[in-house]
Nucleic acid binder design. Sequence first.
DNA 1: ATGGCCAATTTTATTGGA
Length: 256
Amino acid sequence: MLLATWNINSIRAREERLLDWLERRRPDVVCLQEIKCTSDQFLSEAIEEAGYRAAVHGQKTYNGVAILAREPIEEVCIGFGDGGDDSEARLIAGTVAGARVASVYVPNGKRVDHPKYAHKLRWLDRFERWVAAHDLGEPLAVCGDFNIAPDERDVEKPEMWAGGVLYNEELSARFRRLLDLGLVDTFRAHHDEGGIYSWWDYRMLAFPRNNGLRIDHVLATPALAETTTGAWVDRDERKGKKPSDHAPVMVEADWP
DNA sequence: ATGGCCAATTTTATTGGA
């Protein structure tokens, strides 16, 4: 099974690119973030024609997450399901081929001294409780834009990014806590080296300079992670005309 | 090479992203 996560930065702006990519890479499951549209506006017809089902948690203008899969997506859950506020569309989960798959979009935080950063931390607390409520003996893949670069290998210019809303000690600790719950960073299970990133700013020639961060992740429960045979960033999708500022992160697994 | 912000909406500015 080929599993991908991609912050697509507007599905409507990226329709052609997404369809080309689906055709070329043929992923079995795709977690999308920042679709930036309502569920009604999601281009499910074109996606169906490409051979995919879609589960969508959209909202107007901002955020929005979805799961695409070549097999049926069952037991879809929109939001946290904890009775709290789900007006920000940042979490959707469904079961595909016997594995629970979640597409998550963690708040950016804007600036560490901004209320949005406090919101990011509260959101991560809530997300940690959501993960902890799962039986991690059952296969679960948590995929998405975490807006966290876990360690120095995940940042090209640490001196530029340290202490910001994507890379700081507090966030590294939050990420570690997710791993302490039992989830495995599937990319790190296959790569020790730094210098491989999933996001590059549109500005300042960041991509040609490889001034990037690895902030998009596929975390998996141990038994599921054990079946993975490789993980990589589909860097080509950051090239060319009208790219998203994120590239897809891909994981191949001998699953089911 | 991979290229000097981008997308949606409130649209000829503003807001949010990362």
